[in-house]
């Protein structure tokens, strides 16, 4: 039994392939999360300040994306974009590049779109939780609005948002497994390929599960440390 596993994982090189897949998964997760967070900050500010049209648009976006399964969002982005990506690529003469890079780019964008919808809610909640008195104090010191925002509101809001961002990240890294359905070569896809070729699905899906588990466990610990660091000086916080 053990020898079969050894030959599958080491001698046939599937272990390395899965590790490479895990690396791709981490890249997709981190990129998707970062892009989502960067997009979420202005959206959250729009909702916090109740900017007339934008705030409603962001609201609808966030409700729809949080209300439907991630798989459906990924299908929308993949199938919906095939046509015009092809057109753009042909028009600019980058057909080969587009065909090879296309799944990764859309995959990252899909993950970003999902995580952004959740991050918007987290950031908005955090912005609203910043005490009003501090903002009034900043105003009374005649701080320009952008200085008040970047020096007072944002640092405080980020501290409050960290717990929520941790949750969004845990969800995002698990959601990356969904882009395997549309053929991106990440951990889950590698496991599917390996399971198909070697005909031992139990082994490879369990390895994939272990790798995912390791990722979530490690990032959970890191977030715990970060939280302790960012909460220093806040008693009981």
């Amino acid at each position: 039994m053990f020898e079969i596993f050894w030959s599958l994982i080491v001698e046939q090189g599937w272990g390395l392939a899965l590790l490479r897949g895990a690396f791709v998964t981490i890249c997709i997760g981190v990129l998707g999360m970062v892009i989502g967070l960067i997009a979420a900050v202005p959206f959250a500010i729009a909702r916090w300040q109740r900017v007339p049209v934008l705030s409603q648009v962001v609201d609808v976006y966030s409700i729809v994306v949080r209300g439907v399964p991630g798989l459906l969002v990924i299908y929308l982005l993949f199938f919906g974009s095939v046509d015009w990506v092809q057109k753009v690529a042909v028009a600019f003469g980058y057909r080969d590049v587009a065909e090879s890079a296309y799944p990764s780019i859309i995959g990252i964008l899909a993950i970003a779109a999902i995580s952004c919808a959740y991050s918007v809610e987290v950031m908005r909640g955090a912005l609203e939780a910043v005490p009003k008195g501090l903002l009034e104090a900043a105003k009374s010191l005649a701080l320009p609005p952008h200085v008040a925002f970047f020096r007072i509101t944002l640092p405080l809001a980020l501290r409050l948002a960290l717990g929520g961002i941790n949750n969004v990240w845990q969800m995002t890294i698990k959601d990356t497994s969904l882009v395997s359905i549309v053929g991106m070569q990440e951990l889950m896809r590698m496991a599917v390929i390996a399971a198909g070729i070697t005909r031992s699905p139990l082994l490879f899906y369990c390895i994939a599960a272990c790798l995912f588990f390791a990722m979530t466990a490690v990032s959970q610990t890191l977030f715990g440390l970060g939280e302790r660091h960012i909460n220093r000086g806040f008693s009981g916080g």
Partner: peptide
Amino acid sequence: AVFRGTPMLVQIFVIYYGLGQ
């Protein structure tokens, strides 16, 4: 810890494809 730490997709594949082995 196991069920919250791994994606649902992996769990469904382990149950459907894996356990049948």
